[in-house]
Design a protein around this nucleic acid. Structure first.
Length: 273
DNA sequence: CAACCGACCTGTTCGC
DNA sequence: TGCGAACAGGTCGGTT
């Protein structure tokens, strides 16, 4: 669920409470959550580390430590929060980090797909990721060059984190709708105008979703670090709206499967070819 | 490089 | 009302 806007929101919220804190102990209740270490080695290396900054790369929350980096990927159902250490916890809270101010950073993840990485070099985890779509230096020219060598379908490409980092199923569909492009189009078939539209749409949709603090589609869905829902779901045009009328033209939104993932689009506003 | 599949997990929703 | 099947926002590794 969490894509770039959701992870960005979580990272911003955590920054205020975590920067400057030191990790005093760690509790690992589901060891497979820790991708890089066994639970003992994980705790040994983390105790005494100070959190220098909190940021985001692709869909990873990145805690820069005084020595090394802690990266957390929320995958489908993960969430992070900071609460008083005594606060009640449920069975889905798998990793807990005690802090020197009496608070606790908690990683909760119903489906257990989420992972925590502790590495000396960021590149060990982020080395194969494509550019950040909202970065200042990600310009239209760079996007054109990325597209030029690709022949896959737009939908699949936008989901490919090695191509561009941060889009997931929701924002890929929304960006394609905003660009007026059919998800089945081949990347190398776009005109110069279509490339520019897609570039603009990706940046606009993501920036707006960040401003709305992400998308929460249902009760069990995404929550920010304070446990609150996002607001972008009220602005969704096509995702999850198969069979419903397009807000722009009234046509029935279609839902198809591309590369094993659902894709939603308006057949009139996003015509094939 | 591209497309497709199964894994990884649990909870919710849907059809009978 | 109960029960199993299908399905879900992400990624990885393997195969064709």
């Amino acid at each position: 669920m969490p894509e770039l806007p959701e992870v960005e929101t979580v990272a911003r919220d955590l920054r205020a409470t975590l920067v400057g804190r030191t990790i005093t102990s760690v509790i690992v209740r589901w060891p497979r959550t820790i991708a890089t270490h066994g639970e003992d080695a994980f705790e040994r290396q983390l105790v005494g580390r100070r959190i220098v900054s909190v940021g985001r790369r692709a869909k990873y929350v990145v805690l820069t430590l005084d020595e090394g980096y802690l990266l957390i990927h929320l995958k489908m159902s993960g969430s992070l929060s900071v609460v008083a250490a005594g606060e009640a916890q449920d069975k889905h809270t798998h990793t807990l980090f005690n802090l020197d101010d009496g608070n606790q950073l908690r990683f909760r993840d119903v489906r257990k797909f989420g992972r925590v990485h502790l590495v000396a070099d960021l590149k060990e985890v982020t080395g194969n990721l494509g550019p950040e779509p909202l970065a200042d230096d990600f310009d239209l020219e760079m996007f054109r060059q990325l597209l030029a060598r690709r022949s896959g379908r737009l939908k699949s490409l936008l989901l490919n984190q090695a191509f561009l980092a941060g889009l997931g199923n929701i924002y890929a569909d929304e960006a394609l709708f905003a660009a007026g492009l059919n998800p089945l189009r081949r990347a190398d078939s776009l005109t110069a105008d279509e490339e520019a539209r897609l570039y603009g749409a990706i940046r606009r949709v993501l920036a707006e979703a960040v401003a709305w603090r992400g998308t929460t589609l249902d009760d069990g869905g995404y929550r920010d670090a304070r446990g609150e829902a996002g607001g972008y779901q009220a602005h969704i045009a096509v995702y999850g709206r198969g069979g419903e009328p397009c807000f722009q033209c009234g046509s029935t939104i279609e839902r198809i499967v591309i590369g094993g993932r659902s894709a939603h689009f308006c057949p009139y506003c996003q015509p094939p070819r």
